[in-house]
Structure formats: structure tokens, C-alpha cells
Amino acid sequence: MSEPLRLSKRMSELGLCSRREADEWIERGWVRVDGVVVSTLGSKVLPEQKITVERQASNEQARRVTILINKPVGFVSGQAEDGYRPAVSLISSRTRWKLDRSPTQFQPNQLRNLVPAGRLDIDSVGLLVLTQDGRIAKHLIGETSDVDKEYLVRVQYHKPGRLPESDLQLLNHGLTMDGKPLKEAKVYWQNEDQLSFTLREGKKRQIRRMCEAVGLRVVGLKRVRIGKVTLGDLPTGEWRYLAADESF
């Protein structure tokens, strides 16, 4: 027998929206199960039941924006903390990249419910995604996300000589963190003092901690790609919209 699931969870599993969005739509009467409107939060459905949403929900979702910003040092990814400004405070019509090809017009209300889909440390720079779309947030940072992220990492080696090949291989696979083995990474030298890291997970300060484990000190870290979306020529401190034909 199939077990009933919470309607909002099932909608998220199907990729219709995030759980938070699902609850909003349910309360507004925008969700139907087998053709019948369901407006009670906490309602449950069977996996085989058909879930549809009203056009109002689809229209609202289509208006939600996703913004790519080249975060500078000194800004936090999310809420303001310890006196540091959040990256969202950089977004205005004045700081929009002049070469942004999206036809979307900037509106201050686009800043409402704009949340980071992944973090960058305060002392790290590069590509940061801010989105109003729960589907994108789940795709990038959900428990089942397998979107890879690429970083350029400038390092200094604490020991005499050069990092042994065996330690480079350890960065690729074999390290543990917080008591759990890390997923396999792709790490290689770009030049004599810079490594390229490609990860499929994002533990707190993961790259810095990985480097410390093999005697490397990180002196600069820049995220240059998330999935198929690259930082490209986006200037530091400026932003652009995710284009309609772009996908992570």
C-alpha cells in the first residue's frame, strides 16, 4: 500500500515548487488534487493522485527572478551579521551589469524573498546565486542536489618543497570532514600557486578545511561556475539576471 504524503512535500518532490511556495498556494486555493481544490494546510495525498495548480500560481512563479552576482570580499551571503552587509544590499539599478542581455526590468520588489542558493564565505569572492524561485534553490542546495561548483583557489604550502602528488590525490578523494567521508572532488593545479576545485557538496568552509588537512593555506578563493552557469566577465560587485535560456 502507498503511504500518504503531505501535499506540500509531494509538490516539492514533483518539482512544482518549494514547500513554502506550496503552502502559500494551498492557502490561496490554487492547488487541486484529482481536480478538487485543496486549501487546508497539512493535507495528505497518495503518490498516484494527480496534482495541478491554477494559472495564478504559474503566473506568479514566472515573475520570480534569479540574480547572479559577483560577490566581493567583506559581504556575507545571507542575513547581515557582525556588522557586515549582505550581498543582496549590492543589488540596485545602478549596479546592474551593462552587458546583461535579459529584458527583465529591475523592480525594487524583486528584492523581496530573494535568498541565497548556497553560501560564499565573507572572505571569498565570485558567483553567488540569489533567487525568489524555490525550485532553483532546491536544485542547487537541496539534499539530493548533485550540481557541481567550480572554484579557483590560490594557496601557499606550509612545508618545504611542493605539495606531494599523494596529497593532491587525497584532495580529490579520501578526506573526511565532521566524521563523514567527503564526496569525490576534482582538484588539479592551474598554475604553480593556484588549484581548481570542483565539488558536488558544500560543507561550511569546506575547501579551506580540505587544504588545511594537507598543509595548504588558502589566500584567495573565487567561485567561477555553478553547474552550466559561469561567472564569465561579470564585474566584481555587479549583477545580472539568469537568462531565460540558461539552466544550472
Score class of each variant (00 low, 15 high):
residue 243 A to E: 08
residue 189 W to M: 11
residue 113 N to Y: 04
residue 20 R to M: 12
residue 95 T to V: 04
residue 240 R to P: 13
residue 149 K to C: 06
residue 62 A to S: 13
residue 219 V to H: 09
residue 63 R to T: 09
residue 134 G to A: 08
residue 196 S to D: 00
residue 167 D to K: 09
residue 183 K to L: 14
residue 102 S to L: 04
residue 5 L to K: 09
residue 143 E to T: 08
residue 103 P to E: 04
residue 159 K to R: 15
residue 220 G to D: 10
residue 92 S to D: 12
residue 90 L to Q: 04
residue 186 K to L: 08
residue 238 E to A: 05
residue 80 A to W: 02
residue 143 E to H: 13
residue 47 P to C: 10
residue 206 Q to I: 14
residue 114 L to G: 05
residue 140 L to N: 01
residue 40 T to C: 10
residue 151 Y to A: 11
residue 58 S to P: 01
residue 43 S to W: 13
residue 204 K to W: 04
residue 163 L to M: 11
residue 239 W to L: 07
residue 219 V to S: 14
residue 157 Y to E: 02
residue 51 I to S: 04
residue 243 A to P: 00
residue 72 P to L: 05
residue 119 R to S: 08
residue 172 N to K: 11
residue 25 W to C: 09
residue 30 W to H: 12
residue 202 G to C: 12
residue 116 P to T: 11
residue 143 E to N: 11
residue 137 A to S: 15
residue 231 L to V: 10
residue 222 K to I: 12
residue 215 G to R: 03
residue 178 D to I: 06
residue 13 E to Y: 00
residue 63 R to M: 13
residue 163 L to Q: 07
residue 159 K to V: 03
residue 38 V to A: 04
residue 45 V to T: 14
residue 6 R to F: 06
residue 230 T to Y: 06
residue 231 L to E: 00
residue 135 R to C: 07
residue 205 R to M: 08
residue 6 R to N: 08
residue 142 G to L: 11
residue 13 E to F: 00
residue 130 L to C: 00
residue 66 T to H: 01
residue 213 A to Q: 13
residue 30 W to G: 00
residue 204 K to R: 14
residue 9 K to G: 05
residue 193 D to L: 07
residue 158 H to Q: 15
residue 13 E to S: 05
residue 66 T to A: 01
residue 56 Q to A: 14
residue 184 E to L: 07
residue 129 V to Y: 03
residue 4 P to S: 12
residue 194 Q to R: 15
residue 55 R to I: 02
residue 91 I to S: 00
residue 21 E to Q: 13
residue 86 P to N: 13
residue 70 N to I: 03
residue 8 S to R: 00
residue 47 P to F: 10
residue 129 V to M: 04
residue 114 L to K: 12
residue 75 F to M: 06
residue 121 D to N: 14
residue 78 G to H: 08
residue 247 S to R: 04
residue 88 V to Q: 01
residue 81 E to Y: 10
residue 148 D to I: 10
residue 126 G to P: 12
residue 191 N to S: 09
residue 76 V to L: 01
residue 225 R to C: 13
residue 216 L to P: 01
residue 154 R to A: 11
residue 182 L to Q: 07
residue 74 G to I: 07
residue 201 E to T: 03
residue 148 D to C: 10
residue 178 D to T: 00
residue 209 R to D: 09
residue 84 Y to F: 15
residue 226 I to W: 00
residue 177 M to K: 09
residue 136 I to F: 09
residue 218 V to L: 09
residue 237 G to R: 01
residue 33 V to D: 03
residue 56 Q to G: 03
residue 183 K to P: 07
residue 160 P to Q: 13
residue 98 K to M: 05
residue 163 L to E: 03
